[in-house]
Design a binder for these strands. Sequence first.
DNA 1: ACGGATGTTCGCGC
DNA 2: CGCGCGAACATCCG
Length: 269
Amino acid sequence: MPELPEVEIWRENLERWLRRRRIVAASVPDPILRGSQSRRQVESAIAGATVRGVVRRGKFLLLELAAERPDVLIHLGMTGTFEKLTRNDELPRFTRAALTLSRGERIAFLDVRRLGEFRLVLDKERGRLDALGVEPLSATFTASRLHELASRSKRPIKVVLMDQHKIAGIGNIHAAEALFLAKLHPKLPASELTRAQAQTLARAIRRELRGELKRSRSENLRYLQQGADNRFRIYGKGETPCPRCRTKIAKLVQDGRSTYYCPSCQPEE
DNA sequence: ACGGATGTTCGCGC
DNA sequence: CGCGCGAACATCCG
């Protein structure tokens, strides 16, 4: 899935497509709801609603509906995307939800692997959103905030960066990229991060996310779509030379996820 | 043909 | 409480 930058790009698109528009009908078949809410409940809450705006929190998107209706929570999982369709277009394969607008256009939520979510923000969802950590591109994400939250965990720094309860929005790719920029080994115990390293890492995270946001916006890139070149510095580049020092990039598994790093630029000590 | 893939949650054993 | 691990979800790609 899309990590923070790509989710933010989708927020911008959805805002353009949906803001102040009325959704005349919603189709949300059961599988995407996974039994937590009924199809009828979700569709009737959305049908007839006007969209006030679209906001992002971490990797979650929220469609804010006017007139006391619950918001709609969308998570893209690993493979979630959207398409805007005109009146006569067929719904694409892997469409998991569709919103029909007043002129017959439809916004389709597609999710091949079905790891995403599309549901109303009721009590449980509110709790999940409240539990999210600091927004890494907000003014509250400072070096001292990073140092403080890292100091409370003995887990490896890479795992902490991906912990949505601590920092919301960083995933496997951008965690690896930020650590490479900051020249920190992914296994470094978070509690051992010095203040100077926290400063460097906070800057690297901002630079990485802003850079990706800019690239995605200007090139209209689809996130790691099939056929697309791997544009990352280190992610997915095992066995190839480090772009900084030409040492062979190494790979290890942490928390079940592949991590790439340069053993020379990101030494373990 | 097999292994791994941008994510999250749950359950297990320690 | 927290940690590390594996599984589950479903499909595609090299």
